[in-house]
Amino acid sequence: MKRYTTLIAATMLGLFSTASFAVTGSQPAEPIVLEAGVSDSQLISQEPRRYKIQVSQSATLELSSEHQASDSSENVRIQGRLYDAEGNLVAQDSDLRGHFLISEQVAPGTYILEVSGNAMGSPDEVANRYNLHVNIK
């Protein structure tokens, strides 16, 4: 019986730990891999969220954000910074309306996109969400 109780307690702890991670939007240890297209919805955070983009040949890399608020994107600050594999800043853009746009000629390699920001004055979780658009041409 004691082992059964311990098993149930461990299972419940695992369920609550997973839910806590999803709710807080904690940054994973490794950057999230981005593919061409539209990302899943992400939470805006003042702590930069890191994304990894692999480019296989010289191309124009277009990265943009789309704020998810249903009413207005006013006073939603979001910033994107693109770094190369050596950590050099390649490009950046910031906007107070919940969008950024980076369009840059890049060589083959691995790039890191850092996204940070905040939805000033909005406790609504929907107002704190964005998607990323990735286009490699």
Score class of each variant (00 low, 15 high):
64 S>I: 05
109 G>V: 05
115 V>Y: 02
112 I>Y: 01
119 A>K: 01
120 M>G: 07
64 S>K: 12
115 V>R: 02
134 V>H: 01
107 A>H: 12
97 R>C: 04
132 L>D: 00
129 R>Y: 05
115 V>W: 01
109 G>N: 10
120 M>K: 08
79 Q>V: 14
60 T>D: 14
102 I>Q: 04
85 A>L: 05
74 E>M: 11
131 N>G: 06
126 V>L: 13
79 Q>C: 02
94 S>F: 12
58 S>C: 10
97 R>P: 01
130 Y>I: 09
89 L>K: 08
73 S>C: 07
77 R>K: 12
90 V>W: 07
119 A>M: 02
87 G>N: 07
103 S>P: 02
94 S>K: 12
77 R>T: 15
76 V>K: 00
57 Q>D: 15
122 S>I: 03
129 R>A: 03
71 D>P: 04
134 V>P: 02
92 Q>G: 10
87 G>P: 06
92 Q>T: 13
60 T>V: 15
107 A>I: 09
89 L>I: 10
121 G>V: 00
114 E>D: 08
62 E>N: 13
76 V>S: 03
108 P>D: 00
99 H>F: 06
68 Q>T: 13
93 D>M: 09
99 H>E: 14
136 I>Q: 00
103 S>I: 13
118 N>L: 08
60 T>A: 14
94 S>T: 13
104 E>V: 08
92 Q>I: 07
71 D>T: 14
103 S>W: 07
126 V>H: 07
120 M>R: 10
68 Q>R: 10
64 S>P: 04
57 Q>L: 11
68 Q>N: 15
58 S>P: 13
